[in-house]
Amino acid sequence: MSNRQNGGRTVSTAALLKQCTENAQVMVYVILLVLLLLAQILSPGYLKPSHVAGILRLASFMGIAAIGQNLTILTGGIDLSIANTITFANIIGAQLMMGRDENMLKAFLAVIVMGLVIGTVNGAGIRFLKIPPFIMTLGVGTVVQGIFLIYTKGAPKGNAAPFLRSICGQSMFGIISGIVIFWLIFAVAAVIILKKTPYGRKIYSVGINEQAARFSGIHTGWMIFSVYMLSAVIAAIAGFLLVGYTGTSFLDVGTSYNTKTIAAVIIGGTAISGGKGGYLGTVAGAVIMTVLDDFLTIVSIPEAGRQIMQGVIILMLVLIYSREKKK
């Protein structure tokens, strides 16, 4: 898929090259392409459609959760409660569904409400008490972790409804999983909102210069509040969908998602200082993270090694991007 997108752009090689070097959001697709080719060379058959579809399916959870992270980072903040929100949503979802389709709506609504509550607390602390986002969300994340531990007494119950399972299953439309379609819809919505609506413009304004945004008549407090709200709700949805993938829930199902979503956003060319970037790059970022993880698994590098890899990649990319900015 991403292959095609790049092919369509090679109208003028020079223009493309210039754009690539200047625009991190384009560069990330080039990196993805190189990575995929490399994987294909090192492990023939890597790019066969069924495997690519599998990767996209895996990437979609991270991709969806990264929408919220992308919004908070664009405003110059960060959301470190995503991981535990995902886990909690996963637990509530499984527990209320109990493997039956008719419980799905109820479970979904409960998860949304949970997301709203977490988002409200985050947003209120950051907006009204002016607590730095990372520490507010870190604290809230810990509380959420405690709550789901108490709620489950350490042993989560329940499992996915068959319908949810089929959405997140191997093939809904040909070899494409339903979850990938979901992600596509989410992605298109995110890109359009960021690019074409006043809300999106305001997010960029707040991220680049909050004071100037306020002087320009933007209700910056509300903008900040709303992105944490959205981030928590989107993470909750991702956690809910994840039940369909895992079948049941685990206490650490979301643990890696803080680092992963941040990595996806940063790899995708969004500046950690806010105001620059967009979701289009994050999509590629999520796929890159998944491909790397997947490929390292194939060449049997243990979990620990993959974790180190994640850290190193984030560091390398922020270094490269910030160097470019200095020039």
């Binding site: 359009i192 074409k196 609506t197 006043p198 413009r201 305001k202 960029y204 304004s205 680049i208 210069n209 004071q211 100037a212 945004a213 002087f215 320009s216 008549g217 933007i218 105001g275 620059k276």
Partner: peptide, 27 residues
């Protein structure tokens, strides 16, 4: 206070009066 320096001229000129130029929910 006045400008979002790293954003485009277009963005800066338009940001305070976006609502005046809408097509449905979009700019």
């Amino acid at each position: 206070q006045g400008l979002m320096l790293e954003l485009s001229n277009r963005h800066n000129l338009a940001v305070s009066s976006m609502k005046k130029r809408m097509k449905g929910p979009f700019i």
